[in-house]
Design a protein around this nucleic acid. Structure first.
Lengths: 175, 175
DNA sequence: ACCGATGTAAAACGATCATTTTACCCTTCG
DNA sequence: CGAAGGGTAAAATGATCGTTTTACATCGGT
């Protein structure tokens, strides 16, 4: 496996599981079995590494997630949770840890959040047949809430949020 | 103001705004204008301080929040957001930062989450007239989701989540 | 008047962190 | 052959961290 890929996948796993601030670069160095010199030649700095991890994750998340229907959306979330575990949204967690003070990281977080909102708005437009800001925010809240609450209530909340979102969209569609 | 209160309020503000790991004890010492010796005599350790902050916040949150009706619940969240700002749930953020590896902290987080779930279950029981696990999870998800999404979408999401929860409970009540 | 508790000021401790540097080892290609 | 590129190993740098220690001041209570 290519060094950059190796670095990004190890960093994503470590930052995601143990937190950004709590994970030292030494762990990344150890787990990749690279030298620290090589690591820094490739990623530049810890902040830049985190930013690249977020960029990669954003790409992977939006490739994984199916935004064609409400049911597809929450089924995607369920599959993600089953495959990756439930630790809440990485973008939100990193934003909270860094307080938005690292531009390269804050930019990735903002890009993810904007993209998520846009995709849900499109879903609403195509499934309910209208542009509805409030309905979009409701589904966004259900999606975020399911992601967060699943960390201590288990993936059952995803099913519950799904049912709720489905009812909302259907009611709006038949208006 | 009493030293313990002073310490807890400064620590809550700092940990909440800048994150637990990113905030050194030096900041707590500086902002309280106490000596580090006095700080450690009172709180024991940084972890213990965080645990006490969470205990205090839990008390304050449940005193502030009105769980009698769905409308009262989301109105309380709106008032909290207006007064304290929107940075997402402190309990969730701290849990994510520490990875659940500090028992005194993890215990406070678990206590908060259990208490929140129970209070919402009671709300559902009294307003919809039934014990409904799924409906409880749905309102929990809306509450968590509104808290999280408000950090980048603003407090409008709270209103949207409120409307959604209200509809859910009413529909369940008239069954 | 004095003792113990409680505070301050400031240095010191040992650990860890992000990052850089030094010295060396291959491989590849002209 | 020989030089350059890209890798390793390991020490060093300088900052910051949580926490403790040393030395000294203040003050209420018997």
């Amino acid at each position: 496996m290519d060094i950059d890929t190796q670095l990004l996948s190890a960093a994503e796993r470590l930052f995601d599981h143990d937190g950004f601030n709590a994970t030292g670069m030494g762990r990344v160095v150890n787990e990749t079995r690279l030298s620290s010199r090589t690591v820094y030649k490739h990623v530049g700095s810890k902040n830049a590494l985190m930013a690249r991890v977020l960029a990669e994750r954003r790409k992977r998340f939006f490739e994984h997630t199916d935004f064609t229907t409400t049911t597809a959306l929450f089924a995607s979330l369920q599959r993600w949770a089953d495959a990756e575990g439930v630790r809440g949204c990485l973008f939100f967690r990193v934003q909270a840890e860094t307080g938005g003070s690292i531009p390269e990281i804050a930019a990735q977080v903002a890009a993810y959040q904007a993209q998520l909102r846009t995709r849900i708005a499109d879903l609403v437009a195509s499934e309910a047949g209208v542009v509805d800001e409030q309905l979009t925010d409701q589904i966004l809240a259900l999606f975020e809430g399911a992601t967060t609450a699943a960390t201590y209530r288990g993936t059952a909340v995803i099913g519950a949020a799904h049912a709720c979102a489905l009812e909302l969209v259907r009611k709006r569609a038949q208006q």
